[in-house]
């Protein structure tokens, strides 16, 4: 039975379908279950064809699965060769992320091993049914947004900067221009479209997340593994600022005063994600 047969008008189908059933022994779903219209509507043939395609696919599925499984048993190397490059990258990335989180967690724990916070956690462990290790894990820092820069995309000029460390403010203008240059460099080097952009780069447990719109660029320096919440937060801020400051960004000629009011928005991005906060989100 060809595809052309299946796409014939519905009136012609009742004659052919029983033939198909009789010659195809592995059909598991009775063809009678296909509901055919009595009178063919203008697109009746197409609808019946789609339904028949689904039935055919369903009918062939067990046989195809069996063929694939037999092939895998007889020659698994073929599949391994195909999947290995993908799996290798995924596994490496996963291990790197896990190690980064572990290092960040150990550093955090070592920093305040005798602190009041630790004593409080021990008290919580004593007075609850949770173990001390569980409480420590829940409170360990997963990631921390340490610095956020809002940059005018065309000029690379810094519009607003928020940082946990005021010392970083001195170099923020230079960093903004250099980030823009690196972004342009990456796009030119790989011959990418103007809409494409660098989305992040990582080094030694520090990740710089980048969000771009046609007129601005947000760069966030994150210690540890950026969570989906941090990524979502940056997306939302980008959308909000793009909408609220569209005209100011379009008319920008070097005066950053119209953007000063954005500072509290960027400061709100300087968040810390812990195991506890993630746990709270899932619940």
């Amino acid at each position: 039975m060809s595809a052309t047969d299946l796409k014939q008008p519905a009136a012609a189908l009742p004659r052919r379908l029983p033939d198909a059933r009789s010659t195809t022994t592995f059909v598991s779903t009775p063809v009678e279950s296909i509901s055919l219209p009595q009178a063919a509507p203008p697109d009746g043939g197409r609808k019946v064809g789609k339904a028949s395609d689904r039935q055919l696919g369903h009918a062939l599925k067990p046989a195809i699965e069996q063929v694939v499984l037999d092939t895998l048993r007889e020659n698994p190397k073929v599949v391994i060769d195909i999947v290995y490059p993908v799996l290798g990258r995924v596994i490496r990335k996963s291990i790197t992320s896990a190690l980064q989180a572990l290092v960040a967690s150990i550093e955090s724990q070592a920093a305040d091993v005798f602190s009041f916070k630790r004593l409080k956690w021990r008290w919580q462990a004593l007075t609850s049914d949770r173990s001390y290790a569980e409480i420590v894990l829940a409170n360990s820092v997963i990631c921390s947004v340490d610095e956020v820069l809002l940059i005018h995309r065309e000029t690379g000029l810094l519009l607003v900067h928020a940082s946990r460390d005021p010392e970083h403010a001195r170099d923020a203008d230079l960093v903004s221009s250099m980030l823009t240059a690196i972004e342009d460099f990456a796009r030119d080097s790989f011959d990418l479209d103007a809409d494409d952009s660098l989305s992040s780069f990582s080094m030694a447990g520090q990740t710089v997340l980048i969000r771009t719109s046609p007129m601005m660029l947000i760069a966030a320096a994150v210690a540890g593994n950026p969570t989906s919440k941090v990524n979502d937060m940056l997306d939302e801020v980008m959308e909000q600022l793009h909408s609220d400051y569209h005209d100011d960004l379009g008319n920008f000629s070097g005066d950053v005063e119209p953007f000063i009011s954005i500072l509290p928005v960027l400061e709100a991005c300087l968040t810390t994600e812990t195991g506890q906060t993630q746990h709270e989100q899932t619940n």
Partner: peptide, 8 residues
């Protein structure tokens, strides 16, 4: 005075 930024 206010600051203006320019790229050259």
């Amino acid at each position: 005075s206010k600051q203006i930024k320019k790229k050259i």
